[in-house]
Write a protein that binds this DNA or RNA. Sequence first.
RNA 1: GUGGAUGUAGCUCAGCUGGUAGAGCCCCGGAUUGUGACUCCGGUGGUCGCAGGUUCAAAACCUGUCAUCCACCCCA
Length: 459
Amino acid sequence: MSQLVQPPKGTKDFLPEEMILRRRVIETIRECFTLYGFVEIDSPVFEYFELLSRKCGSEVEKEIYVFEDKAKRKLGLRFEFTSPLGRYYATNAEKLTKPFKRYIIGKVYRYENTQAGRYREFYQADADIIGSYSMNVESELIDLAVFTLEKLSIGSYEIVINNRKILDGIINAAGIDESKKDAALRALDKTAKIGEAGVIKELQENGISEENYRSFMRIIDLDYENETNDNAKKLSILKERIIAELKDESVKQRTVEGIDELSLIIESGRKTAAVSETAELPSEDFIKFDPLLVRGLGYYTGPIFEIKSKDVAIGSFAAGGRYDNLVELYGARPEGACGISFGVERIIDIITQKNVDVLQYVSAPVKIYIVYLTEKEKPFAYKTAKILRSNGINTEICVSSEPNIGKEIKYADKKKIEYVAIIGEREAAEQKLTLKNIKTREEKTVSAEKAAELITKKQ
RNA sequence: GUGGAUGUAGCUCAGCUGGUAGAGCCCCGGAUUGUGACUCCGGUGGUCGCAGGUUCAAAACCUGUCAUCCACCCCA
């Protein structure tokens, strides 16, 4: 195939069969957001580049699609929804009811190399709350995530949580310079992947000494003396160490605040889990505190979290956190803000990989296919279609002028349509139709109303 | 942006040390003009990702380029 008939790198076409599952996933997320009281908004796919790149970090900035319009304005495609939300909020703050709980589902763009689960154009579904500093917001978002993921039957997963305030405080206490903070965090985030030696090496490459690393780890490393997964215990040990080791009072206070925030969220998560009646819900410590979780985006200021599948290795499929001073950047009064973002493609990939036959279980949108044999039966066929449709049944009518019944049945079967209605001379004379169930091969000659009833009852 | 693998029919792939393309599935037609999954017969479909180069001759060798997958980087 020549290059010109392929979609651009990192994008893809979706076949009708794929769209059924896609639509279902997106609609499920939408329903859940709505059930939690979030309202839908929309904003442009492109914004001023300068606005998108504010505070996102140079790594992310490289991934923005940039272009100039004909009046030489420098624009960029949105690479996520948080920066556009900051702008949206600042523009419309006076018209919005606070706390502003909004959701948005749409395409975002990242100029990066493609890989499994990584595309250049993909859907994200975002829920954010602006206008509150309470940790109830974090709890609400995590509860929303749990609820949504159950509805999506995503299988087993893990929510990992940390707090930027804790990381910042310990970085400071370890004597790592503020200017090297991002590089340090990025390296530390990889501990599980590249091991201690790898992290030290990367830190040194960025001008951070092994000594700095050791003092950082002396405070943060919880696993040697404490194998437990008990978050509360981990947090309290960490808190004691911070109180003992941090010298600067204001840094200490802020770091302890970070610990206390996580305690509140995790405690609240326990209550949520206890209330849920669904069997598939993870155990009470489904939220896991990981002091080395970082998250790349530069604007996070408080709790941060990621959700990963335990069944499919694809990276995180949802993530979020608190970004309290973001709206201020766009000229609005400072407000507490926190959000979560779901990666729709990754969720679909997980569902598909968990259950390869998933498409078979998704029923076709069309329920019945009407075949009339000659022009004479056409008026009755269209009348029948109208009756079925007004009963809410998705009905397709054959457009071939010389239909071959065998072929038409085959067509319906391939499209996974459950019923075929055959209307020929015999049926038209009685004002009836022959209703054939494709799977069972049963046939009944009935009126359109009766057919509607039979199909509706089956659903 | 870096490194590795791959690119042949709609799909999955074969094609030997260079001699100018094949299978299965799919699709279309017929056996079967008001009934599809099985069977049989026949048929359509490929500038071998693209562009150069080496050669009497390239799907094969060389170079470049584009795309896909994987690993980095980073992230949904």
